[in-house]
């Protein structure tokens, strides 16, 4: 997993609430057996017309946002299906950070497993960040995970919370499975005890 330390990038505004994972990556792209190559299909139905041409109204089709690495999005981002194809598609498009007032649980977890930082801010902060994102490609937002803060293009600083274990893994690009394997003795002991306590399991 790629490390996430400090990201200075263009942020794209997506004020719509309840952007679900079906919107982020529709089902026809879930048939892949790989993790890569989904970026071109991210937000497919909003992004492309029926004839395959780009929908000029969609934010990531605007010249200013084609190189965006941050999304500033409406409430409850990533709701619905557990498909990890959603963060894979975002990552493959180039998105490393999503900022919203809330995220659906499974999507939120999935982001951390793929080097994407989801940041929860207040409604008021989101509005200010949305305005900053609307400035387009002349503006750059700085997301600093080490110091847990976002700096807008005007220099306004917004602090955020993040789980310390997840922060540690993201900053160091650590693989969860490797870390858990170090605790294999605890798992072995638990499994033995469980087999006696609940033999039907």
């Amino acid at each position: 997993m790629e490390k996430f330390e400090k990201l200075t990038a263009i942020a794209a505004p997506m004020p719509l609430i309840n952007i679900d994972t079906d919107m982020i990556i529709p089902k026809q792209f879930l048939k892949t057996i790989k993790r890569s190559g989904l970026g071109v299909s991210a937000f497919h139905e909003m992004r492309y017309n029926l004839d395959g041409s780009e929908n000029p109204d969609f934010v990531l089709n605007h010249e200013a946002y084609k190189g965006a690495n941050i999304l500033v999005a409406g409430d409850n981002f990533g709701c619905g299906s557990s498909r990890e194809h959603a963060p894979w598609a975002l990552l493959d498009f180039g998105i490393r950070c999503v900022i919203s007032t809330s995220f659906a649980d499974i999507f939120y977890n999935n982001c951390f497993k793929n080097g994407i930082l989801p940041v929860v801010v207040t409604e008021d902060e989101l509005q200010r960040l949305m305005k900053d994102a609307e400035k387009g490609s002349n503006a750059r937002m700085v997301v600093d995970l080490e110091n847990q803060q976002i700096e807008t293009s005007d220099g306004e600083v917004i602090a955020f919370d993040v789980d310390q274990h997840r922060k540690h893994c993201l900053i160091n690009g650590l693989d969860d499975i490797g870390l858990s394997m170090e605790k294999i003795a605890s798992i072995d002991a638990f499994e033995t005890q469980m087999a006696q306590r609940a033999p039907w399991v």
Binding site: I106, D163, S180
Partner: peptide, 20 residues
């Protein structure tokens, strides 16, 4: 509950899930 594919791999390998 539902999990993502990275978590599927984690459960396959360790029979556990990292949770709070």
């Amino acid at each position: 509950h539902g999990i993502g594919t990275s978590e599927v791999e984690h459960v396959l390998a360790t029979q556990t899930l990292i949770q709070k």
